[in-house]
Design a protein around this nucleic acid. Structure first.
Lengths: 212, 212
DNA sequence: GCCTGTGAAGGATTTCACAGCC
DNA sequence: GGCTGTGAAATCCTTCACAGGC
């Protein structure tokens, strides 16, 4: 039943949840699909349709109860629990990820970090001790880890992904500049600022006058 | 004419270009839509259709010339030139961005960085000197800057975006955890690992057995 | 009067399937 | 035989528009 919800819809829910959290912080108790849509540059109909996949959360004539809808969205997305994350690759990028303070408050706890470089192993980064890449399999089998963050060079990203998948990880956040293969039942998202910029340049060019 | 090309298509071109660059590096001179699709988990038909918006680059019976198609894609996307980027916000995240070595080799040159914190101003980060946020307008008017990278707290991201847009920036890479408003003729892409994780948790939950 | 929830319509994107060429 | 380029079909997603409830 929940299986036929379009992935685009799921991808928008965290955005809605974030906006609702901001409204809740400002003390707003009620919001219409119109108002929420205005804040997010999304049509009100889209918000209503998206939410309708999960139930009837609004009140005609009034709109949605802000804390109520926020709670429901967090339940739907599973944001009401703690998730265990491991980071593979503790180079410059991996270090920045481990030290970034934005995951913990959102329920994503970094429980381990791995690196193949012996010089990194044993160092403490952002409060955790870097483990050897060889310990990855063992760790994953002995500890619950929900999401693997891949921050290794492109050349070894596929083998790291394979290792994570084989160990039973169901979700991967990929920072490596390549597109790894994953089985269809594994979620993967890509964080790639260069790729993002490379599509914007097309439009800058276009605006500059189509040609050169 | 180029105006009706779907944005989804444009967003895929950098992925194709990256895969072609990898093939070229391995010395491959020819690739079929089938082989490229296999490497990228994309259907061959989609690749052919996407490319057909821009011309006829392949040869029946053989496929596409790897360096030739790569060159054409780079031209189409504007990756054959240098782009000037400025970074606003040089906190932890902004520093990591400025120090990240992955932009330069792809033609994205970071030409300036700004921060509102007087303690940051004047420091050198990744080879450039941090400027005061108050200098942003002046700098943008006296120098060509193509892309603005926003790495400030959510609370001030909208005003930074407004400032960039008013100064004539046409493309924004947003790292702030909120959705800023931009006029329709401005490109914006969001880099948000938390949001990415928050949609994957839905599917992890689902796989664990729907309920919980 | 205002706003939700939702079938139905419309639009966009993907996939099919095949003619044409190497 | 293999593969592209592409209309047509199929699918997916968004928007419309309105009945129904507050």
């Amino acid at each position: 039943m929940a299986l036929e919800i379009p992935e685009v819809v799921i991808n928008r829910l965290p955005i809605y949840a974030r906006a609702l959290a901001a409204l809740a912080e400002q003390g707003e108790t009620v919001v219409s699909s119109q108002a929420l849509g205005q804040a997010l540059d999304v049509t009100p109909a889209q918000i209503r349709k998206d939410l309708s996949y999960f139930g009837r959360f609004g009140k005609q004539g009034r709109g949605y109860n802000v804390p109520g809808l926020l709670t429901r969205l967090r339940e739907i997305l599973g944001l009401d629990r703690q998730w265990h994350v491991c980071v593979v690759g503790v180079g410059r990028l991996g270090q920045a990820i481990v030290e970034y303070g934005g995951f913990g408050p959102q329920g994503f706890q970094i429980v381990a970090a791995f690196d193949a470089d012996p010089a990194m192993v044993g160092r403490r980064v952002g409060g955790i001790t870097v483990r050897a890449a060889t310990e990855l399999d063992g760790f994953l089998h002995n500890n619950r880890v929900d999401i693997g963050v891949v921050a290794v060079p492109a050349a070894v990203a596929q083998q790291v992904v394979d290792q994570l998948v084989k160990a039973g990880i169901r979700a991967i956040l990929n920072y490596a500049p390549m597109t790894p293969h994953v089985p269809r039942d594994i979620s993967i998202r890509h964080i790639d600022p260069v790729i993002a910029m490379q599509s914007m340049t097309f439009y800058i060019k276009l605006a500059e006058g189509g040609g050169k």
